[in-house]
Design a protein around this nucleic acid. Sequence first.
DNA 1: TATGAATGAGTCTTCATTCAT
DNA 2: AATGAATGAAGACTCATTCAT
Lengths: 203, 203, 203, 203
Amino acid sequence: MAPAKPRSPNWVTRRQAIVDTSARIFAKSGYHGTGIAELCDANELGKGALYHYIGSKEELLAAIHDRVMDEVIRSAERVEQAGGTPRQRLTMAGDELLDIIARYPDHVWVFLHEFPALTGDRAAQFRKRRREYERSIEAIIAAGIKSGEFRKANPRLITLAWLGMHNYTYLWLKPEGKFTAHDVAKQFATVFIDGIATDHGAE
Amino acid sequence: MAPAKPRSPNWVTRRQAIVDTSARIFAKSGYHGTGIAELCDANELGKGALYHYIGSKEELLAAIHDRVMDEVIRSAERVEQAGGTPRQRLTMAGDELLDIIARYPDHVWVFLHEFPALTGDRAAQFRKRRREYERSIEAIIAAGIKSGEFRKANPRLITLAWLGMHNYTYLWLKPEGKFTAHDVAKQFATVFIDGIATDHGAE
Amino acid sequence: MAPAKPRSPNWVTRRQAIVDTSARIFAKSGYHGTGIAELCDANELGKGALYHYIGSKEELLAAIHDRVMDEVIRSAERVEQAGGTPRQRLTMAGDELLDIIARYPDHVWVFLHEFPALTGDRAAQFRKRRREYERSIEAIIAAGIKSGEFRKANPRLITLAWLGMHNYTYLWLKPEGKFTAHDVAKQFATVFIDGIATDHGAE
Amino acid sequence: MAPAKPRSPNWVTRRQAIVDTSARIFAKSGYHGTGIAELCDANELGKGALYHYIGSKEELLAAIHDRVMDEVIRSAERVEQAGGTPRQRLTMAGDELLDIIARYPDHVWVFLHEFPALTGDRAAQFRKRRREYERSIEAIIAAGIKSGEFRKANPRLITLAWLGMHNYTYLWLKPEGKFTAHDVAKQFATVFIDGIATDHGAE
DNA sequence: TATGAATGAGTCTTCATTCAT
DNA sequence: AATGAATGAAGACTCATTCAT
């Protein structure tokens, strides 16, 4: 791969804006269902000018993915650095995850719906980072089982349950919605952790 | 809408086979990413003949949706007819749902990824049935809360958690996979119902 | 490469006509200078229908190349089978070559001007066959030198001189032109073979 | 046409360098196959700056043509001034021509491949100078026939043979190649002039 | 002199669909 | 029932060129 050529701060700012705007459009009409012309309209740019910023449609899609993935990976790092019991760490991870989902509803929609549209290296890179995050969750759960805090079960399966419960909120969790991310996270943590715990804090 | 033309049994059988085969292709390449030519190849049919059976690409997509939705709605009816405590009914619902997901992995993938591609009446009809199913789950949960079996919480939120946990399995639950649908369902039920229950069966 | 799917005789005929018509357009405006739209006009076909026959613009270009290359290779085979002295064989080769150039002026123009536009396997295949032909000429010249009929010289260099003299006629040799291919070939043979011969038949 | 604006010596020097560098790129990728961006890269200049020097892409192409044509025309003048027998003049013309082809392989490639891309006045001007050169060769040959040095033949046809033999070397004659321009020219002269001569120097 | 953002017509190609056979 | 030729709008993307800075 040729090294990405250096760009002016103006260019970088503008590109970021385009990535965010386009995420909204992709979330509404789907990646394949959105034409370049539609993106041009939304970004108030001619085709040539748009391509000046995005390189290609798929590169734009990858940028949207990265925008979320960067945050998700960073949240996993914060959780790891924060330490605490598995219960505390899983609670924090859920809180951070739902916060991202609520703050980037469009990006996350794209992320969870359109990842099969990534190809080649971009797809590989994306899968790698996704797996990395999932493993960080699985590590917490495995630790909890090992310590006896969580009941004996297949950690991968429990992880998948947790991920499903949390990720699936992308369909309805919105910044201006009925539930706040933090409230939902708290309730989910209660349900899920009580469900897997050996002692039940609530009682 | 014009009443559906009566068709020969042969036609119906062949159409069903085409719907199933096409689900596989859509799951692999996406609805927009799949061309009619590819469907023709997969079904070993010329374009004219294919259209003889499918009417249009979107009608084919709708048929794939219906194939799953019919099963899902029917499972909800079975659950209702079976009766029992909320705990029992929720367990059964999860078992049936995962069974469908495992038996129709391609259809379900399409169902959960490509529903935004449906337009007009077809989209409305689909949303209506989907909501209907979700309400049947919510009713069980609300009943459990009312009866005191489940702890006090927003039933909609709990429903969404349950749906996320179960629906999300479409990403990894396969007929030939490591976990059977029934096993997964049992474990999910344990976790989830323990998580929301007021008394904990495990203790 | 996937095996070319079988085509109806109608399709094959029509395709051949398209190849020939398009050669004329490419010869006039150049390969890169000709748009698909222009080809559609010339062939009285819509874009979709044109692609039904050509596969891609470059495949069309390759078909034009093949049309000539097939003839050229066949002419080399005829020369070989005809036998005779090097002088006779070289004369015959020139006669056959100019005949092809005169009969396919457009194809040959494309062949000699646009071969760098071929890529990948097609380019390799083309270079291979071209070299094959050049070697058949070089073999004749080398035989003449060895037998003493032609004077001592670098056979490759003499071959290149011969090829230049003959190929370059594509710029002016036309079926309806001032000179016939056969006349030109006869005069070229006289000049060239006298130029390299050790005895001069004319005297 | 407006009179060419007067330019600083710096500008002229830089432009010449750009013309030569661009010839290399055009020779590699073709005129239509080369984008302005590629020329900018090769010349290490932004688009605006490049246009400051070249005016337009076609003007750049014309400059490449002129670079060669100027030399070719000048060589014809030198041949004329040098005088001598037709045989001597033709030998000298071949030597000069191959020298140019070997020294400007890229320019000549462009010259011989891309001249159809010139339009309007530029195309007319180019054709005029090209014809001028060809006539100077034809004049030598006609003189040789008239004087009896060359055998009776259509001078135009003999000229075309000579031009083909020499011009066609652009495909393989390179400064660092196996054959030097001077050697090739000498051998070509021997072959060609012996081929058309009435007496044969070799005997 | 030089930059690079912007234009918008143009590139080749694919699309879902129709229809005569 | 089935074929495959035809349509023409739309697909993503590149082009040569201009111009404010």
